[in-house]
Amino acid sequence: MFSKLFKSQSALRRFYSTATQNLTEKQEPKTYYKITLLRSAIALPKRYKDTLVTLGIHRRMQTVFHPHKPDIAGKILRVKELVQVENVPASAVRTKTEQRWERRPDPGFEVVGTWKNKRWLLDEEGI
């Protein structure tokens, strides 16, 4: 009986988690374009390059975020052969610096203290 209850509870939990997931997805409307330049505009007419500059893209594989607006849509469609576009919610928008920090690998260690402040030593001694 207990196992049966547990099973039903876990099922219930799963149901709730999916329900909340759906809720959060519904709560966050996708209002931004995530634009990545896959192909360069080298040797194309100058207006293609200029369009990329106005979108804030200056190198291949660079990702920028722009809100859903007609002028941005027009720019994307001008360079539609060069870019990859995704619709994302506002919470997924990242600046260049944030994107770089997210790309960083795990350093594999954690600084617990430095020789100068000796916090780690005090912790070990229980002071």
């Binding site: 996708k30 374009y33 896959l38 859903h68 607006k69 007609p70 002028d71 941005i72 849509a73 027009g74 994307i76 469609l77 001008r78 539609k80 052969e81 870019v83 990859q84 576009v85 995704e86 619709n87």
Partner: peptide, 20 residues
């Protein structure tokens, strides 16, 4: 197909413009 995907994404965003 990749270009089709770009156009489809812009269409899904709900923006209306001549380019679209």
């Amino acid at each position: 197909k990749r270009v089709d995907a770009v156009i489809e994404t812009v269409r899904q965003s709900g923006v209306e413009c001549t380019a679209l």
